[in-house]
Design a protein around this nucleic acid. Sequence first.
DNA 1: GGAAAAAGTAAGATGTATCTAACTTGGAGG
DNA 2: CCTCCAAGTTAGATACATCTTACTTTTTCC
Lengths: 258, 258
Amino acid sequence: MYLTWRRARHRFGEVIRLPISSRIEDYMEEIFALEISGREATVTDLANALGVAKATVVAAVRRLSEASMVSHERYGAFRLTEKGRERALRIHRRHEHLTFLFEDILGFDKKRAQAMACVLEHEMDEEAEVRIMGFTDYLARAQKEGREWVKDLLSVMGDERKLPRPLAMIPEGEKGVVTRVTAEEPLRGRLFSLGLSPGAAILRLAAPPGDELVNLEADGNEITLKMTEAASVWICTGPDRGPYKRGGMEDVPYNHSA
Amino acid sequence: MYLTWRRARHRFGEVIRLPISSRIEDYMEEIFALEISGREATVTDLANALGVAKATVVAAVRRLSEASMVSHERYGAFRLTEKGRERALRIHRRHEHLTFLFEDILGFDKKRAQAMACVLEHEMDEEAEVRIMGFTDYLARAQKEGREWVKDLLSVMGDERKLPRPLAMIPEGEKGVVTRVTAEEPLRGRLFSLGLSPGAAILRLAAPPGDELVNLEADGNEITLKMTEAASVWICTGPDRGPYKRGGMEDVPYNHSA
DNA sequence: GGAAAAAGTAAGATGTATCTAACTTGGAGG
DNA sequence: CCTCCAAGTTAGATACATCTTACTTTTTCC
């Protein structure tokens, strides 16, 4: 049994690696949330909050205890150490920023926003956090002040949109519109100069022999790409091409205040 | 969950839908990326791309094969099935949208943007994808067209900002400014009506006996909150309070075009 | 056409997170 | 003060993703 082994090694004073996984961070975050609400974190609380068995909480807290993130006496409540509280605060704060972004700004439903925040909060450094905070705060303020462009931005988000596919997946004879080019420079620039930039209408032609190349017509010019290049050009097909229209986007509501 | 399924399958001897973990989805995504570039996916390719041992790839592909996502003959290359390709396209597309958001819009470095996209792509449904796509496309277009508000938005993101803490963590006698209130309604409204809304200056006073309550002064009025309530009010302390100033934000560069 | 190299696979182990089924402890009521 | 129940804990098992080492098959090249 794993835990037995770890405990045994711990008892003999062996220094063992103490990585705190993102999942273990979730336990810290929950302890933190309980602590700042003035409650004590118990095994049962955490098990309920995280939807796991109590035994699982005990195992997690033991790891946190070994890592000096939490102090815990048998049959007692948990308390974050200074180090643990600092770390838990960071995670909790990131969670709040992200929830705000996804739920209040982007308008996702609560469950989805939480799920997204829950995974993302463990992948952020301080710089990422500050950027997201600046971004959301700016948008929230602009929204509160009734800026027209925010209204447009948020309303455009609700639009039904066709989802694009890589050019390489478009069948021969099909028409579409470029929505994005994900290639890195210098390929990106080359594709743009060939007319393959967002908004361009394309028609995929019969492939030349060899299975390595793609023929297509873009803005009336016939061009040939390698398959690898065609993979980075995203195309919307079908009658509903979303807000992108050939040759301009005049009909899209946009910055009424400008 | 998985356990239940496993048992059910054993008991009824029936193959139900095999669960594909987010990690296994990464393998699909990589196979997809190779396929649309016109290359065949091999064990070695995937092992290199995902940074794992070849044996690990074999195990992953076996699971994908059992789930009918990939067809594979011993010692041969992998091919996504129709079902698998559909799913892999979704994941790949979400990855691209997210990378675009984090790298091109929010300005994160490539590595961070990839890490964030990699975890988030598995937590999105189609609605989330469409919203993010609409959001990024709108911002990208506005940026391309040189809208002033986008410049402001993006420059504000680079600002050094102090990070807030929950009010419950602020020591007695410390001053600060409310930056966000994360409570749900109706508590949110109540806190707002007490003057606790973003921008409000507060001063934490000595706590009343009992350890369950928080005393503070907000805009000159003394108010008392429960600890649970104080946990949802975020405070920036210290001389540098970021772009939030008491009583107005006149000095923040904002929508020059308006 | 055969030997060496490269690619693929198998077997067995580890580490993490989880479960269920016991077992132990602490405290609340009678 | 004792009993009993809820809370906490331990033991043992499973699922999953991963590794290393060794074996097998395919490819390459002389």
